[in-house]
């Protein structure tokens, strides 16, 4: 294979995708230019338009080409509920998996002092402004169940309580279809301490 030229440029560019090494990138590039020229055209156009226009929603910080994303612009959604998540991918999975009808707030990261990520980098000021305007009645903290995610959740919870907003955290527990014998001990400990009474 030649070491320079347009094809090599495409292969190198494809390597920026997660999980794509030189071999897969070569297969993709050859497929596009040998068998699917139309697909290559569409891909190029879509990428170009998206790279120019995609930005962050002014209200919830998720990725969108408009000023407000479709969720924030929707009149049917409950403005009093806000769910705080770490990434736009979390918005998608929550929307797919649940019947949640409130708003979202995307941090695009989590508090991690060892990586130099503090409150300013994850848009805490913006969230605080939204909490202060008194429209929000419940804040749902759906950050990841990692130490950094918990630290972020704790910080935001303190902020919300100071603004007299009710706060809840996603439950940790036994996965659906899971057997106790095979669950790791810390998940089981969380599930046990977070048990609830049957009504």
């Amino acid at each position: 294979m030649q070491k320079q030229g347009l094809l090599t440029d495409v292969i190198d560019a494809l390597c920026c995708l997660p999980g794509v090494g030189p071999k897969s990138a070569q297969r993709m590039a050859l497929h596009l230019f040998q068998r699917d020229r139309g697909g290559a055209d569409n891909l190029a156009k879509a990428l170009q338009v998206a790279a120019d226009k995609l930005g962050n929603c002014k209200k919830c910080r998720t990725l969108t080409e408009y000023e407000l994303c479709s969720i924030c612009a929707s009149p049917t959604r409950d403005q009093h509920l806000v769910c705080v998540v770490e990434s736009p991918a979390d918005v998608w999975v929550i929307n797919q998996a649940t019947d949640y009808q409130g708003m979202f707030f995307v941090l695009n990261g989590r508090l991690s002092p060892l990586d130099g990520i503090g409150p300013d980098e994850i848009g805490i000021d913006q969230l605080e402004q939204q909490l202060a305007v008194n429209q929000v009645t419940e804040l749902i903290l759906a950050t990841n169940s990692t130490v950094e995610g918990e630290a972020t959740a704790h910080f935001i919870a303190q902020l919300a309580l100071a603004n007299h907003v009710q706060v809840s955290r996603l439950a940790h527990g036994v996965p659906v279809g899971g057997e106790l014998e095979f669950i790791d001990s810390s998940t089981l400990a969380h599930a046990f301490s977070g048990r609830r009474s049957i009504e």
């Binding site: 002092p113 060892l114 503090g118 303190q158 100071a162």
Partner: peptide
């Protein structure tokens, strides 16, 4: 120390 910077930022907020 980034964590010290973060802790002092947290302390600036009245809640911590």
């Amino acid at each position: 120390l980034q964590s010290r910077r973060l802790i002092s930022k947290l302390q600036q907020r009245p809640v911590c």
